[in-house]
Design a protein around this nucleic acid. Structure first.
Lengths: 141, 141
DNA sequence: TTTGATAGTCAGTTATACTGACGATCAGCA
DNA sequence: TGCTGATCGTCAGTATAACTGACTATCAAA
């Protein structure tokens, strides 16, 4: 009975849905969505990134990235400027506001992750490591 | 650095994407998609289900279920008939073809799950149990 | 300096699932 | 028996997300 609830696909999908619902709720007070948070994280890097590099890291399309940067720029959280070394590219960097907001949002997201993993007890890091292992194995297709 | 790759959201999303890609590939020879497989699984139940009950179990909308049953019915894998006890409802049941195909597809999906979890070594059931635990905890919102 | 490739952008398309409304049907009650 | 409100399946329309393809500007290499 209730066979489908034990299938891996069901479990992965609903774990992801549950996490998404939680993180959206937690980030809402900061005026950003979960995906915008991810984009901010990518651009908050030691080396400045072009839009396309950032898109590749998140495994989204470069045309999709345009809209994200548009949105974040209109919120004054990031700014585009042409890469002097290659003027086809945009260097996207966080503004001071962006960095401030990202710091606060990260704290909130960390707390949400802790709550999400709480049912697993003390060794929830094992679960996270398992996820990473699976993804890594799959990337070598 | 490469901060975002350690975030739980990234891990959950990409684990789900990897699994989806694998299962779609494995089910393609049987002429069904991953979501259709899930729908078949739900309707292959001891007690006959209405469309709405099945939709609730998969956490999809009842209007979405209509299209799935349409597709599966046109492939002669399921059939609708009005519930004699409540003629507002459709009882959806698998045809003989549907049962046969589901049996084969299930074998293939099981094998895919095994391959997917292989990187975790012998105790991959722990990982699955963790997923179930998280979902269950979240359902009590 | 010409050729082929790449980055960002935009318009249009596709995929997916939703909202709202409708007819048919049911359960409860006067 | 005949109303009243709710439910089921269905459909049309809508919203959202992400894509494809084309375009311009720019670069790298011969």
């Amino acid at each position: 009975m209730s066979n489908h609830r034990e299938r891996l696909g069901y479990l992965l999908k609903h774990a992801y849905l549950a996490y998404t619902a939680l993180i959206e709720q937690v980030l809402a007070p900061y005026g950003i969505e979960g995906r915008e948070f991810a984009v901010l994280l990518v651009f908050d890097d030691a080396v400045p990134l072009s839009q396309q590099e950032a898109a590749r890291r998140l495994t989204i399309d470069r045309t999709t990235m345009v809209a994200f940067v548009d949105a974040l720029e209109s919120k004054r959280l990031v700014e585009r400027r042409p890469d002097p070394a290659d003027r086809r590219r945009n260097i996207v960097s966080l503004t001071d506001d962006g960095r401030r907001l990202l710091a606060e949002a990260t704290t909130a997201a960390d707390e949400a992750e802790r709550r999400f993993l709480a049912p697993l007890g003390p060794d929830s890091t094992r679960f996270t490591a398992d996820l990473a292992r699976i993804i890594e194995a799959f990337e070598g297709h």
